[in-house]
Design a protein around this nucleic acid. Structure first.
Lengths: 195, 195
DNA sequence: GTCTATACAGAGATAGAC
DNA sequence: GTCTATCTCTGTATAGAC
């Protein structure tokens, strides 16, 4: 593993576990077991390292689901995949990472770019599936696949943050969304937020 | 206006406009036009000041809607109120404030408490209305008012953060949620996320 | 309650030897 | 590419005069 890779990985780790406030050139370098000055040698500034780390996490994560996304044939399939995906990505810390980056977007151009990119990648993937599934469904023409995909992604971020301050509350929120999803007409379950 | 109040107000302002990273004892004091040491005299630590400021913002905001909440008689009414509320609170910066506090919950007990409290107040209010409205509706027994209220609140936080990195994307997401809401059975419009 | 002054830790970042 | 050393700034927090 190169120094660059160690730094990228450590940054992603720390961002997910400690939040933005716990991420500094010093903490990253310590966690990676490399010298602090190398952060600046390889990435210029800390926000740029953060951006690179998030892009890498997202690219890896999205790519790991590409086959499963293209196998989806029904809203039921999508629902099942969504549940899996949510569970796995939360454990990996990728959802928390995105939430932190988006919260920090106000104070850094690089973080804003990273947040934009991450949302773009995930919702782009989901949008492709939704576009296929909505053809011929009662929802066709009523909701746009692009908007729906983005709504699901944004709500996931919100639920992640909420879970950080009230786990039980977030659980009940998710339960209600699942219940609502089961009401989507003519699909037998599988609404958008159900994952 | 007392020094205490100036500090609370300035903290809320800065949190909404600059984000957590832009909030420090120095910046707050400068914005309030008071001496920096007074932050510690009145509130002990910076996170405690943040907590107090958020509680105050939330209490004031929620109280200002209490009458309108209790006037709601139909999902249509709720939808209209939700749109108003969302527009006004976003402009006031209260949504951004909550998003920042929840993102910082990882690094501070006080912020976690503040985030919990804010979500509790807003969803408690909404839950009361939903509990009334769901009686006799097709959704009664299918979704819990408590969970639904929390899902709406959490999604609002997520959309706020997303809007910070991609305004157009967040707009399309909101549009899709409105479209979905119009499909809620037997109500003629007025689903949960539509506000 | 408010002010000045200051201690001290940790942040980002760079210079220069290796 | 890597390491040591260091500069500078900004952050929290406190002591003590007023």
């Amino acid at each position: 593993m190169t120094t660059r890779e160690k730094l990228l990985e450590s940054t992603a780790d720390l961002l997910a576990t400690e939040g933005l406030a716990g991420v500094s050139a010093r903490s990253i370098a310590a966690h990676a077991g490399v010298n602090q000055a190398l952060v600046f040698y390889h990435f210029g500034t800390v926000p740029e390292l953060l951006e690179a780390a998030v892009r890498r996490s997202v690219d890896l994560a999205v790519a790991s689901y590409r086959d499963r996304f293209s196998d989806v044939r029904s809203l039921g399939d999508l629902l099942a995949l969504g549940q899996d995906l949510r569970r796995i990505e939360r454990r990996r810390g990728n959802v928390a990472q995105m939430a932190q980056v988006m919260a920090g977007a106000q104070s850094s151009e690089a973080l804003a770019r990273a947040g934009w990119y991450a949302m773009q990648q995930w919702s782009g993937e989901l949008e492709g599936v939704l576009a296929r599934l909505l053809v011929g469904s009662p929802l066709e023409g009523v909701v746009s696949p692009a908007g729906l995909a983005r709504a699901v992604a944004a709500s996931t971020i919100g639920l992640e943050l909420y879970g950080g301050v009230d786990e039980a509350g977030a659980g009940s929120a998710l339960g209600s969304l699942r219940a609502l999803a089961s009401l989507v007409p003519a699909t037998g379950g599988g609404g958008p937020e159900a994952g």
